[in-house]
Design a protein around this nucleic acid. Structure first.
Length: 440
DNA sequence: ATGCTCCTGCGAA
DNA sequence: CTAACGTTCGCAGGAGCAT
């Protein structure tokens, strides 16, 4: 009989160690609006690479029912009907805006975890519990004034609950004016509120898990909160068990301030058009390996292995499918573009098969370590290594000064037939649907 | 038994 | 006219292998 290992009556959600989750609203769209106020009040989407999918939607677009990551071609008709403005992503701009937002937010707490480009956790323990809502309002006002970006603030005792509180603030389920503090609610109110929120809205519960949960009649946040966590661990994973505990105010996921270097670096892209021959693929692989190596050196890391993959278009079910990858260990961990590119192309020769239309390729640098930690082998030629380091430094500084891509390796080619598709729409198309000639 | 590495699945933004 | 569907990261857990 469903013995429960948590006494729910005793749990006071949101009190113990308040954590705030500050999340920018429709971040990419909001960034664009800062620099083009005409976009205000109008339906706007920002598209992913290749103009593939919607990665950010304004409130007006969400109201039209456009889902996150929805392919552009599927909403094109709707877009035309409602004059949706579609913009290509400008990652340089978003990165810069993010840095400004995060820098200001860091002044609101001694402990900050930057969780993604548009959100961060702030440790608010020690603050007056009565004043947290007002504090959240101050945060919102400050960011809006100084950067022009609207944010919402969720406050609760665990990270999972803070995410949920933020969700409530955004959806206006609870809280007002973009701030929701679960600490202001009684246990009964929380239960009622949670019973209205779909289980899939919880941080850590994605499509697969939520489908399975709904199949077990666990449909709302409240259903999951009161589920038997140890039994759920057996049927799902330790991750879901932690989520359930966190929903009950038991902190299992610590605030992580550490700025740890990445463990792997992936550069991959879908092609603007499919390519079949080896030379085109080889150019793309060289280009991606070069780009990955640049990131690697920016992190001051070296890679001990390279993974190369190529694949056909999985959405073209009728065409013959092929996807394959290979991992090549580096003899010695390195950050040298020339070595990494050569190894990557060598890997490509091992997996390439003619007769397929390839849609995507990529390079993954793995086994990353801090540069200073590498053991140089006895047989290594120090002069040679020094020369390689100097060459890479020159290359990086030229690209910093003259702009990305000024200096690259010849193998990445000049034809680049695989490059991202951007010419499929004229500039006007992507800035204003109203400028489109109407179909006849 | 125990500890690894590799690979896959999942989730997140 | 048609066809058109992102990228990058970490974690968990199982398989396979070595000790």
């Amino acid at each position: 009989m469903g013995r429960r290992d948590i006494d729910y009556q005793e749990v006071h959600i949101g009190h113990a160690m308040p954590i705030a989750l500050v999340d920018c609203n429709n971040f990419y769209v909001s960034c664009e609006r800062v620099f083009d106020p005409k976009l205000e009040g109008r339906p706007v989407v920002v598209l992913s690479n290749n103009d593939g999918c919607a990665v950010a939607r304004s409130g007006e677009v969400k109201a039209l029912g456009v889902k996150m990551a929805e392919p552009w071609f599927k909403m094109e008709k709707l877009a035309k009907q409602h004059g949706i403005i579609a913009l290509s992503s400008n990652y340089t701009l978003y990165g810069d805006m993010s840095a400004r937002v995060m820098s200001i937010l860091s002044t609101f707490s001694p402990k900050q975890e930057v969780y993604s480009i548009d959100e961060c956790f702030l440790d608010l323990s020690g603050f007056d519990p009565q004043s947290l809502v007002a504090y959240g309002q101050t945060i919102r006002k400050t960011i809006k004034q100084h950067v022009g970006i609207p944010v919402c603030v969720g406050i609760a005792g665990t990270k999972t609950l803070a995410k949920l509180a933020n969700h409530c603030a955004k959806k206006r389920y609870a809280g007002k004016d973009g701030v929701c503090d679960f600490g202001r609610y009684s246990a009964t109110q929380i239960s009622k509120l949670f019973a209205t929120i779909p289980v899939g809205d919880i941080w850590g519960v994605g499509r697969k898990i939520s489908e399975k949960l709904i199949g077990m009649n666990i449909e709302t946040v409240e259903d999951l909160r009161t589920a038997n966590s140890s039994r759920m661990r057996q049927q799902f994973s330790i991750v879901l068990e932690r989520t359930i505990k966190e929903l009950n105010g038991i902190s299992c996921i610590e605030l992580d301030e550490a700025d740890t270097p990445r463990q792997q670096i992936m550069v991959s892209r879908s092609f603007g058009q499919e390519v079949s021959n080896f030379d085109d693929l080889s150019e793309s692989i060289a280009y991606f390996a070069n780009s990955a190596a640049e990131k690697l050196r920016k992190d001051e890391s070296v890679a001990s292995g390279v993974c190369v993959f190529i694949q056909t278009n999985p959405f073209k079910g009728k065409s013959p499918q092929y996807h394959r990858s290979v991992v090549i260990p580096m003899g010695e961990p390195t950050g040298d573009t020339v070595k990494l590119v050569n190894v990557a192309i060598h890997g490509l020769t091992a997996i390439y098969r003619g007769g397929f239309s390839y849609k995507k390729s990529g390079v993954l640098l793995m086994g990353l370590q801090p540069k200073e930690a590498i053991q140089t082998s006895l047989f290594d030629d120090f002069a040679k290594q020094d020369k390689s380091n100097k060459l890479m430094s020159v290359m990086d500084s030229i690209n910093r000064r003259m702009g990305k891509g000024s200096m690259t390796i010849a193998a990445s080619g000049t034809k680049q037939r695989w490059a991202m598709r951007r010419d499929s729409k004229s500039p006007n198309y992507t800035t204003d649907w109203n400028e489109l000639p109407t179909a006849t």
